[in-house]
Design a protein around this nucleic acid. Structure first.
Lengths: 198, 198
DNA sequence: TCAGTATATGACAACCTGTCATACAAATAA
DNA sequence: TTATTTGTATGACAGGTTGTCATATACTGA
């Protein structure tokens, strides 16, 4: 969490540091990202940085949080446009996100997250409680078995992020897309034949 | 890949370095593991280390490879004892691996992999071609839909590793085990009700 | 105007990594 | 046995990193 000092900063200066950080985080993977480089980009002193954030991880978490908001609001939209169908929604989300990362330059940050920083997937796929409440109200669940929706949603979300990671890794090869869609179908319908159902 | 020089080393010296490395890798997560500490543990010089391995990642990959062998041979055994049933096998594998990590001290290395180094899951879950050929011959596939067995196996393997990671993270809480088993069932039978099958 | 608080700074200690000239050992040739 | 080549070991070094802290500066409100 950034310090109060950072949050009190003028918009312009805050943006300066955020931009500098993003730049560094998509220049190289997380572990190689250098605070030295960031403070150079942002034209602030070493000491200042450490009054804003406790360390690199703290800064990264903050940037992640900013992106997370965007992702979840997009997810909501998609669910509505798909009438709450979980399968349709997650197929669509894959296309939307890969498209965005492919085209939008600022998404290079996301790109590097997906590629290198697998650990933070967890943070991404676990939205807050309020979000789940919302999701539950939107998902069309009449066709589903009596599942824990939160659990199922998290499973699909996790699968989505793995899919996007693979997509980025393999230059959006159509094969990866097909594999993703295949996985979604397995989650929906299973691998066992009808007659062997439990 | 370790250099020829390393492989030529006497057994005792090789073991010394391997043990020292394992010790360091389960002392701290990968990114914090220090080559300095390793060469101190192993009583070799800095220069020597770099004639054996190109860098930390190289060393780590080597240790990973050693573990991988064990994991896959265990997997084979389990599949046989379960008559090739994919569901039974993966439920059993979870119990076996969590048990091993819980009790066996040397497995602290694995423990840290599961906890921190998500990236290498990929390496773990993708066995060589020969292994897949073997798996295909062992899996009881008559009850399965016409799936790509390699794809399905990889999916289950990946799920297994996530499950173990969670188990380690949450001190082998039984709740995690139940969640894992739930996920396996979703993979087997899907989330949709019968009547909505494709 | 002055005290008190908030913010900014860069030198510093303590670490890290990968390289390289050099030293030593062991094997092979003369 | 001696000389030469080949393989192995070494630690000082350059150049990088991070987090801290005493100090300096800028605000802010009485």
């Amino acid at each position: 969490m950034p310090s109060k000092t950072f949050l009190n900063l003028k918009k312009k200066k805050k943006k300066m540091l955020i931009d500098a950080s993003l730049k560094e985080f998509y220049r190289v993977p997380y572990t190689e990202a250098s605070i030295n480089q960031i403070i150079l980009n942002a034209h602030i002193s070493r000491g200042s940085f450490y009054t804003y954030f406790t360390d690199k991880n703290d800064l990264f978490g903050y940037l992640l949080e900013l992106q997370k908001q965007r992702i979840f609001s997009l997810t909501k939209e998609v669910f509505i446009s798909c009438n709450g169908d979980i399968r349709e929604s997650f197929l669509k989300l894959y296309d939307i996100f890969t498209d965005e990362i492919k085209t939008n330059d600022m998404s290079l940050f996301l790109r590097n997250i997906f590629l290198y920083f697998n650990i933070c997937k967890e943070k991404f796929t676990r939205p807050g409680h309020a979000f789940y409440l919302y999701v539950k109200s939107v998902i069309e669940s009449s066709q589903l078995k009596d599942e824990d929706l939160e659990f199922v949603f998290h499973l699909f979300m996790h699968n989505l992020l793995i899919g996007i990671t693979e997509a980025v890794k393999h230059q959006y090869d159509d094969f990866v897309r097909i594999q993703y869609r295949h996985k979604v179908d397995i989650l929906c319908y299973g691998i066992y034949k009808e007659e062997n159902k439990c």
